[in-house]
Design a protein around this nucleic acid. Structure first.
Lengths: 109, 109
DNA sequence: TGTCGTACTTTATCTGTCGTAGTAATTGTA
DNA sequence: TACAATTACTACGACAGATAAAGTACGACA
């Protein structure tokens, strides 16, 4: 189980990654995360939707309504230029973070 | 700069790592972190001391007073069996976390 | 006398995550 | 036809870890 204190701050990156190729919506993103990680990480619904709100507030994603004529209306999100920039920076930060934390990890029986 | 949301949850591990070899105290641990990471990560004082309190409350470290007869009295900490166990588990969790997050990271120009 | 370095403590605030619950429509199944 | 399950969200409140700001206390040094 991955603790929420560790993934914190990377949920945004996970979401942005999934919007790189094409716009998407909550439920689909949620499923994709589970699939990609083989259920090793399951993002909570509330975490996901509050991340959407935060990302949109910061201008990293933009929402629009889908054209479904049946079923509950979906809110789609697409990544912005700023979002792409933010994603790139966070990826670089991740490389640094990995190396820093690795210095405090020991392989033990 | 490593964001606090990313390192969150690993501050405990950093501290425990530094207590593996020998007991130590706040100021020394703080200096060691800076040195080991070449100033890439500097743990805030309040973060450090609140982590001590949490770790002791959870039984992962034990405090005792140093024998300095001059200067301000130091509070030393040593790792417990439970702390060692916790450290090991977190190291294993780290390996999983790394792989999970790596799936959402892209190398980009 | 004043500043720097060492070694902490207290208090209060912020943010992201998460538990709980509820709404609303569609699809499966018995 | 009834009921459960799945899809697709929204609202509210609580919690924990990180942090800013400020203060205490001691020694050394100039």
């Amino acid at each position: 189980m991955i603790s929420s204190d560790i993934i914190r701050g990377y949920n945004d990156i996970i979401i942005l990654y999934l919007l790189l190729e094409d716009s998407s919506y909550g439920y689909e993103i949620s499923k994709n995360i589970r699939q990609i990680t083989n259920e090793e990480y399951v993002m909570k619904e509330t975490t996901l939707y509050s991340a959407f709100a935060r990302l949109e507030k910061n201008g990293y994603i933009q929402s629009f309504f889908g054209e479904e004529t049946q079923g509950k209306r979906r809110t789609y999100y697409k990544i912005t230029q700023e979002g792409l920039q933010y994603y790139k920076e966070k990826c670089e930060e991740w490389e640094v973070t990995k190396e820093v934390i690795n210095k405090f990890i020991k392989e033990m029986g």
